[in-house]
Write a protein that binds this DNA or RNA. Structure first.
Length: 698
DNA sequence: GAGCACTGC
């Protein structure tokens, strides 16, 4: 049976014996022994995250390999590992450790390993059968993070095919999926009807009250902010002692200042509080009923940040925050009708509303050819998958057959969007990676330019930023990023330099770490024999911009009239250069540009822009419309024969001949963008803006 | 002439 360890004799902390999970210890240990898959469910406070790995350790699972536990967030992975190492009386990083990006706190001795789901996904890339592990526990599966969803599908697939499961493994891998009491039946069915183990929670009742302030017709209104303040103050004046947690869509702290005298605490939070933040003593919840969500629109090829009603499950989770220490109350500022008509049952999982380009490349690199019939717990819409395939084809990560190219194998190693990786690899092959590495890093972190709310300070910040642009001699936003990175790095007092120039020091520091990581990955790949190398004769500025073109030609736009540009990606969106760009107000001198991203607010803005010459993208542009949906769809489903590819090529040549000149192709690409979602997003933005101004005036 | 949550490699 289980091997004894030095901790067995010392016993658990008394506290852990009081946890609801403790009396199910033996049953849980046996259940994992008896099943390949197991779903464990229980409310927060049941102790499943800290205790189950210890139970499995005591049951001897460590002798066959590590016990790995994934978390969707870094802080959770680190703090839980700390807690468990204390309980097991060992120093962190020895028997119990954690791994998150930039911080690997594990050693050869580590047998209980907490990590982010993204880290485990990286490990699978290097070792598809996870030969180092005896058990993998996916925690917080109900959050449906992109990486956890992918891991679920991969583990299901690996374990359900006996041939793959045994390859490279001495004993079969055990998989435990832990989730809040939500959709657990669905998880069980997904995992072949595996047992579901329920651990009773330790929570107190929460009563919920609806109000009529927000009805079914108010989904886009910002009146909820006022109402939330009103309700919070009501609670303060009329309810018994206990702290208040308020859920809003963004931080608008000023509306709660000054706090009324007394000792009651009022925490205003965005979705951070829904998951990571634990606040003791919360007795009251004020729920606005809204959340800010980034949705990817595959038809227009852009991400739109929207304020949307939360789901019923999310509302229940918000309410639950009031019942951790004693009975609580939840005040919902919306009506029962709003609940019924506007709030979906469950939040749409991330995998169904995000760009899938990087995920699809990862799957392909793991040998998942049929990315449409991959076992997704919730299948993304087919057009999202096709769009991802198209992008991967366009940046040379996959070929016409949907097979990963040599370049694609290199690209998957980088924690970057594939287009940017493509540009970076191009630079590396031409020996100028020092230009692209800092840029890639800067584009991976939050916005580094600070723009204060105060009008005077704002002016000063804008002036400083313009000066930086001039000093850099930078003719585009990418070189601007490069220059800021290098200037700050070379500075004797980088933090003071940042403060003086209205630059986010914290963001720059993380850009430094990202750059180091990217450089390490690149160096590792360059040591391989077949790393591509090319030659280039020309000046450095052109070299830099041509590298960018290789990755960003899909984001090319051409000026049509005045300050308006038209994208060439087949959507033909009419876009403007964002006012934060160094190229803003110089539109008249521009013709062709490429850009890093699109932002939909009062207009469709392109951000991080770079002028290019048509010549540099001329040969790449046909790739934008080379592949049709039918072709991709069949590529996505099955292996494609040489004959079929040849047939497509012939069809394409014929098509090009009938279409004639490049100009004609552009005309076709300059289709007007009639996507209602974009105009809707714009209308909502303008409405909110108007309401805010009215609020100010009154 | 400028929006805005969060997480992850």
């Amino acid at each position: 049976m289980s091997k004894r360890t030095k901790w067995d004799t010392k016993g658990d902390l008394d506290e852990s014996k009081n946890l609801p999970i403790y009396q199910h210890k033996a049953t849980l240990q046996q259940a994992v022994k008896d099943n390949s898959f197991l779903v464990v469910t229980g409310e927060t406070g049941s102790g499943k995250t800290t205790q189950l790995p210890q139970y499995l350790h005591q049951a001897g699972f460590w002798s066959n390999g590590k016990i790995g536990i994934t978390q969707p967030r870094r802080v959770a992975a680190i703090t839980v590992a700390q807690r468990v190492s204390q309980e097991m009386h060992c120093s962190l990083g020895r028997e119990v450790g954690y791994q998150v990006r930039f911080d690997d706190c594990t050693t050869q001795d580590t047998v209980v390993k907490y990590m982010t789901d993204g880290c485990l996904l990286r490990e699978i890339l290097a070792d598809p059968v996870l030969s180092q592990y005896s058990v993998v526990i996916l925690d917080e599966a109900h959050e449906r993070s992109l990486n956890t969803d992918i891991l679920l599908g991969l583990l299901k697939q690996t374990l359900s095919s006996p041939d793959k499961a045994s390859k490279g493994r001495s004993v079969p891998l055990k998989v435990v999926v832990m989730s809040a009491t939500l959709e657990t039946d669905k998880l069980s069915v997904f995992l072949g009807g595996c047992p579901v183990f329920t651990i009773p929670g330790r929570t107190f009742p929460v009563t919920s009250k609806f109000s009529c302030a927000i009805g079914p017709k108010d989904t886009e209104s910002s009146v909820y902010i006022k109402e939330v303040v009103k309700v919070a103050l009501d609670v303060h004046t009329s309810e018994m002692a206990g702290d208040i947690l308020v859920f809003l869509t963004d931080q608008q702290k000023q509306i709660f200042q000054p706090p009324p005298p007394g000792i009651r605490k009022c925490v205003v939070a965005t979705n951070i509080a829904a998951t990571s933040l634990t606040i003791n003593g919360i007795k009251y919840i004020v729920d606005s009923g809204f959340v800010k969500q980034l949705n990817h629109n595959s038809r227009v090829g852009m991400d739109i940040l929207e304020v949307v009603p939360i789901s019923k499950s999310e509302a229940l989770q918000r309410a639950g925050r009031a019942g951790r220490t004693s009975a609580g109350k939840c005040f919902r500022i919306y009506s029962p009708a709003f609940w019924e008509k506007c709030m979906p049952e469950y939040t749409v999982p991330e995998i169904q509303r995000t760009s899938l380009t990087a995920v699809i490349l990862t799957l392909k690199c793991l040998g998942v050819h049929d990315v449409i019939r991959f076992p997704y717990l919730d299948r993304p819409e087919e057009r999202f998958i096709l769009e991802a395939l198209k992008q991967l084809y366009q940046c040379d990560a996959i070929d016409r057959r949907g097979k990963v190219t040599r370049l694609g194998e290199l690209m998957v190693e980088f924690p970057l969007p594939p287009g940017l990786t493509r540009a970076l690899l191009q630079a590396a092959s031409l020996g100028c990676e020092d230009l692209l590495l800092p840029v890639a890093a800067m584009l991976s972190v939050e916005n580094i330019f600070i723009r204060p709310g105060h009008p005077e300070k704002q002016k000063e910040a804008d002036k400083k930023h313009r000066q930086l642009g001039v000093q850099a001699g930078s003719c585009n936003d990418f070189t601007m990023l490069l220059s800021v990175f290098e200037k700050c790095k070379a500075s004797d007092a980088p933090s003071a330099w940042c403060k003086d120039n209205y630059i986010h020091w914290r963001a720059l520091k993380s850009a430094f770490s990202v750059e180091t990581q990217l450089r390490e990955i690149l160096l590792r790949l360059q040591k391989k024999r077949d790393f591509p190398m090319e030659k280039f004769d020309g000046n450095k500025s052109e070299l830099f911009r041509r590298c960018l073109c290789t990755g960003y030609f899909t984001n090319v736009a051409r000026r049509s009239v005045g300050k308006v540009f038209c994208t060439m990606d087949g959507h033909g969106s009419m876009v403007h250069i964002h006012p934060s760009s160094t190229l803003f107000d110089q539109e008249a001198q521009l013709d062709w540009v490429i850009f890093h991203d699109l932002l939909v607010t009062s207009r469709i803005y392109i951000r991080t822009v770079c002028p290019i010459r048509y010549d540099w993208v001329k040969d790449l542009l046909p790739k934008l419309h080379e592949v049709d949906v039918y072709e991709l769809s069949s590529v996505a489903r099955e292996e494609v024969t040489d004959e079929e590819v040849a047939k497509w090529m012939t069809k394409e040549t014929a098509k090009r001949q009938t279409e004639g000149s490049a100009e004609a192709v552009f005309k076709k690409l300059e289709k007007r963008n009639d996507e209602s979602s974009v105009s809707d997003a714009r209308a909502r933005y303008l409405q909110r803006k108007q309401e805010r101004q009215q609020g100010k005036a009154s």
